[in-house]
Nucleic acid binder design. Sequence first.
DNA 1: CTGGATCCCTCACGATACTG
DNA 2: CAGTATCGTGAGGGATCCAG
Lengths: 225, 225
Amino acid sequence: MTRLRSYGQYCGVAHALELVGERWALLIVRDLILGPKRFTDLRLGLPRIPTNVLTTRLKELEESGVVRRRALPRPAASVVYELTDYGSQLENIVLQLGAWGAQSMGEPKPEDILTADGAVLALRTAVHPERLNATERIGYQLRIGEVQVYAVLSEAALHADAGTLPDPDLVITMADFGTFKPLLTRQLDPAEAVVSGTVQLTGDFALLPRFIDIFCLTDPRPAPV
Amino acid sequence: MTRLRSYGQYCGVAHALELVGERWALLIVRDLILGPKRFTDLRLGLPRIPTNVLTTRLKELEESGVVRRRALPRPAASVVYELTDYGSQLENIVLQLGAWGAQSMGEPKPEDILTADGAVLALRTAVHPERLNATERIGYQLRIGEVQVYAVLSEAALHADAGTLPDPDLVITMADFGTFKPLLTRQLDPAEAVVSGTVQLTGDFALLPRFIDIFCLTDPRPAPV
DNA sequence: CTGGATCCCTCACGATACTG
DNA sequence: CAGTATCGTGAGGGATCCAG
């Protein structure tokens, strides 16, 4: 049933692509990086995926040892999919691939969506950990189109997730999520964006440059671990 | 003609996969990492690829700005494909993907081949640059099945390529290329392999442990640049 | 409501043959 | 050498249906 199409090469890259190179597979891994998810959650994050393809991919990834299927204990009569240890080793590769792809990403097409997971991933990709300092404690709330995500910098670490923060130091709002990437790549000047109303701020305005500094996709980046 | 199937997400990973996520695409990039290649060279390195698919992929990769098609000057009435600067940024990602895939790679199947490029890539992936030292100068010649590749360590850098070396310090020969990966992952004990005849040596035997030490896929690795 | 299974259609892939 | 042409197959896309 699960026929793995071989590339006919004894090569790590070829074998890796046999495991996670099928269409949709790496996007499933991407969504699972942020934590275990149910079938339906994955569907929502991958709006165009046919359910049969999702089923097939999950089976293949499970068989490959990348994903584990786990039944939740009572009372949640449900099932979650999560990355195995082996699958988790893809995390940095997927993030780097995202950073590479983001460079050549233009305006969003009309049918494109931005998920909260996508925004969180973008923050985790873009962050420059070496620029954080231990004494600093900042809470950013982002509203990007419909999605709400937050980023907390404390103890030289980033905590980013979907949802809202109780007392953010700065709320950054943009109606169009097409604004987000130019901001992170410095194609869009923050000050200008605020003046033109493309980006709206609530809170300590002075924390915006710091945000751009910490989350910049184009600055040279020390190698991730 | 070139219809790019969209994933419908405004996300760096999704966009990256639209550029290089099609079947065979990353293997083409992989082969081009080692330098410009002609159409026929690519065919030889990708033994199972249909020529029309290779043509299509090259066009798509060119359109995506990953690959550049360049006509060679006279007298070589020919064409080569090479990575653009943007495409070259995939190098580390592809190597890391190869290291990830190699971990779960079993015995080669009967139809699998090993190309010289594959072996060179494996060496460049497996090398621990931080273990090289500036004073050391070693030339290894490897014969893995039919392929011949060499690795020269000098001035704390690795030079690996297909072909032969004039005066190697150690020649490492293995008839079956299935032996190569277990050696690099320390699943196969070098001393045992030599005693059993799976691996044959000519030259300074004492340089074999050093080889395994420098090229070890499983040891924790400082982040690549 | 979650977690799929089934059906049908289309197009990308794969194999082979052929050409400038 | 560097591709095009042709054609069959099967994986992906999309809608619908079903069991717990």
